[in-house]
Design a protein around this nucleic acid. Sequence first.
DNA 1: AAGCTAACCTATTCACTGT
DNA 2: ACAGTGAATAGGTTAGCTT
Length: 204
Amino acid sequence: MAEDTYSHKRVTTNHRRCRTKFTEEQLKILIDTFNQKPYPGYATKQKLALEINTEESRIQIWFQNRRARHGFQKRPEAETLESSQSQGQGQPGVQFQSREARRCRTTYSASQLHTLIKAFMKNPYPGIDSREELAKEIGVPESRVQIWFQNRRSRLLLQRKREAVASLEQEEQGKIPEGLQGTEDTQNGTNFTSDSHLSGARMW
DNA sequence: AAGCTAACCTATTCACTGT
DNA sequence: ACAGTGAATAGGTTAGCTT
């Protein structure tokens, strides 16, 4: 199903980053922390990163995967949402309400943005090498570059969807009702690259 | 080959910043 | 206030290792 949800990636992506192999000890610490708080804030992640000597971004990914796979909070499902601060006995309940602070928002300068956008037009799915290079060039962590590309792609996709809907509505309005208008493909692009990888840099 | 899981994706939402 | 956008999240896919 959905055979090629990711088809484009294949073509444009360089390579993924090498798979991280956590040691038993690292895992123990990670799991321990996870059991205490499945949604750690930036400070906690930083601290963890330092403690087990890995990048904060790897920790973020690890928590994401862990939450997805281990439905965390498998305990009493009583406190799904806002239970008060009840710091349960024995097993600390998961703290859902007071979110810890997130990472500070990065503000990109015009020239940094220029560099990112240029790179995006060339390849919206940069591999680890390209991202690292870009990161170095503009002086931000690689993880920020990755997030920037994710957000950029999402918003571009969203914009295209809206445009598609808008033009469809317009068409309907200007067309004869119940027209026999063939519904031939419209070749809209729900995804970048319907095999022409953003070749021409249109918007942006 | 199958299972596990890091890496990565889209879609959506939260939340900060500048207007 | 609102738009723009970085950060976080859920949920899904891809692919490297281990068994």
